[in-house]
Design a protein around this nucleic acid. Structure first.
Lengths: 210, 210
DNA sequence: AGGTCCGTGCGGGGAATCCCTGAGATCGCC
DNA sequence: GGCGATCTCAGGGATTCCCCGCACGGACCT
């Protein structure tokens, strides 16, 4: 029985490239998602063996997607794809429940290896990303957890991406007033009182890029 | 005689995916480059018909790479790949000599179409990226550098730092309406219509830090 | 069971914004 | 002098932002 794979990346061209390589390698691609929400929906319905999740998707953070996917389909395993090689995302990704951490700067062969290992129940982390892990252990496991709720992070990310409150409400299927409420709570929690500082916070927190 | 193609992208995995798709489409991939400098070197030696250049490569800017490639191999044509869809890079890319401008969020079919058209000597620009072009023509096409005036940059920086328009007016000793006017013209010039994107632009332009 | 957070949802209302119009002054340049 | 760009200021309408309150349900504690 082949390993059933879900691809989540907002660059359609790369999804297609990845799909071509995977099916050429005797792996089954059961679905493609162009954003986090779609990824969660498809994972819930299809329960793939492996979900390849790009960490930097617009709308919904790749780490939150990871959590949701695992919640909706506990037997699926998530491999995070990222283009950052020198960051501390590894730790966050593993904490979110990811079983694999692969860099886009790696080759396809490494991805296949990661898929095989993860499918066997092991964990794969790119060699380039070990140091942050070691350092995280050395500095003790005291995690400073994000003061924001998932919903709030979601709203903050959309704000920082330039969406208006109305657009956010539409994207999340809630009323404008509710979206405003989330925004207000984010501002209160962070003690920030203007949009610009909110955007800078989101960038510093690596929720989005400049 | 098949079209000879060079791929330049710092994500090896995507290069391989692209290569798989291209050779499946009867196109010849003569080389892959993982950074701008290598792309220039390979283009100089191999003189490919088409160079696919990712605009966001580390080390050497995709636009500079475009210029260098065309200088070293004038008969080659460059297609720029980008993940930004709402920016004014198109103009810069074409000014740098690119013959194609393709979004990674487009499908592979569009890329092939772009390659075919560019190989025929035509120019391909993704439909989503026409507006900046039109506006660049309307506003006269010979501004090389920062389109903002000194005052406008000043105001933009204060906006990005989180100041309200009233505070900006106070800081610059001008009326609120004037500050608002500057803000409006900054937005018009940059084709940006929300504060969040303004902040991100300021950070990208290194006017402020996140 | 009762109490208390917390997250999420919604509304009112005042302040600030975005976006358009128009207009006078100054400066540099051909 | 004429032309264009910049800086200055203003009015007004539509929209959005931001703070206030309130309600419901779940989690957790006693």
């Amino acid at each position: 029985m082949p390993t059933r794979i879900l691809i989540a990346d907002d660059h359609r061209m790369y999804r297609e490239g990845l799909r071509a390589l995977l099916i050429g390698d005797d792996l089954e691609v059961v679905a493609e998602a162009s954003d986090g929400r779609e990824a969660i929906r498809l994972a819930t319905r299809l329960k793939p063996d492996i979900a390849l999740v790009d960490i930097s998707m617009s709308g919904l953070n790749g780490l939150d997607v990871t959590r949701e996917v695992l919640c909706a389909s506990p037997r699926s395993r998530v491999i995070v794809l990222t283009m950052h090689k020198d960051d501390a995302y590894v730790v966050d990704a593993l904490r979110a429940g990811a079983s694999g951490y692969v860099l886009k700067s790696q080759g396809f062969a490494e991805l296949v290896q990661a898929i095989r290992e993860v499918a066997r129940g092991e964990v794969y982390v790119a060699k380039e990303c070990w140091r942050p892990l070691v350092e995280a252990c050395q500095s003790g496991g005291d995690q400073i957890h994000d003061p924001l709720s998932r919903r709030e992070r979601e709203v903050l990310q959309l704000i920082a991406e330039g969406k208006t409150t109305k657009e956010i409400a539409g994207a999340l299927n809630i009323s404008v007033k509710t979206a405003e409420s989330h925004r207000g709570r984010v501002m209160a929690k962070l003690d920030i009182h203007d949009t610009a500082s909110l955007v800078r916070y989101a960038i510093r927190s690596r929720m989005i890029e400049a």
